[in-house]
Simulated scan of single mutants.
Amino acid sequence: MEKSVSPAKSGLVYGVLFGVIMVLEFVIMYIIGMRSLVGTSAGLVVNIGNYLVLPILFIYLGCTNYKKNLNNGFVSFGECLKTGVSITFIAALVYGVFNIVFNFIFPEFINEMISISKDDMLKQNPNITSKDMEMGIEMMKKFMNPLIALPATIAMYSFMGLIYSLIVGAIVKNENPQSL
């Protein structure tokens, strides 16, 4: 009997690649300067890429790779879901771990992000009270805590992966008639 590769395992390479691309984007944005990118079209493009284009692209690539190269031209809807969620889970894990390590190496980054957020809050709402400002900053600090940031990143990307896998799975699925 032929040993088959699981759909989740086949998504490993695409998940790591997706995660590395997000890490590289982050590093480039850090080098360029986060303050100069906040509220610009470059920041918007990166967000659209990370939350829409790249996940759909890598899920599509992972599902079609599994279908064409690993499963004799067949892929079920469930296999697409497993592949897509595993890709986004692994990408989020890579990115989340990098983010934690980065914040330990460069602790001033958190303070810079808080300063950028304060300026942005004041720009959006000049009449904000100091109490509301402080409450927003405290919430932001809580979500920068590694014990919250990593699971939240993984959960968010996994959920997005589930939604996008439903869409991609509906497009690329090709059930094996012998398995029905």
Rank of each mutant, 00 (worst) to 15 (best):
E2R: 11
S6N: 12
A8P: 03
A8F: 03
L12M: 15
L12Q: 09
V13W: 04
Y14K: 04
G19T: 13
V20D: 04
V20T: 10
L24Q: 07
L24H: 08
I28P: 14
I28M: 13
I28G: 11
M29N: 07
M29Q: 10
Y30I: 07
I32V: 13
L37V: 14
A42M: 15
L44I: 15
V45P: 01
V46F: 15
N47E: 12
I48A: 13
N50A: 15
V53L: 15
L54P: 02
F58W: 01
I59H: 07
K67Y: 08
N69L: 12
S76N: 14
G78R: 05
C80W: 09
T83Q: 02
T83I: 06
G84W: 04
V85L: 12
T88D: 01
L93F: 08
Y95Q: 02
F98L: 03
N99E: 05
V101H: 03
F102T: 03
F106K: 08
I116V: 06
S117Y: 10
D119I: 05
S130Y: 03
D132I: 00
E138S: 09
E138Y: 06
M139H: 09
M140S: 07
M140V: 13
K142Y: 13
M144W: 07
N145V: 03
L147H: 09
L147D: 04
A152Y: 14
T153L: 10
I154W: 06
A155Y: 11
M156P: 02
M160V: 14
M160K: 14
L162E: 08
I167S: 01
V168E: 11
A170S: 13
A170G: 14
V172R: 03
P177V: 11
P177T: 11
L180M: 10
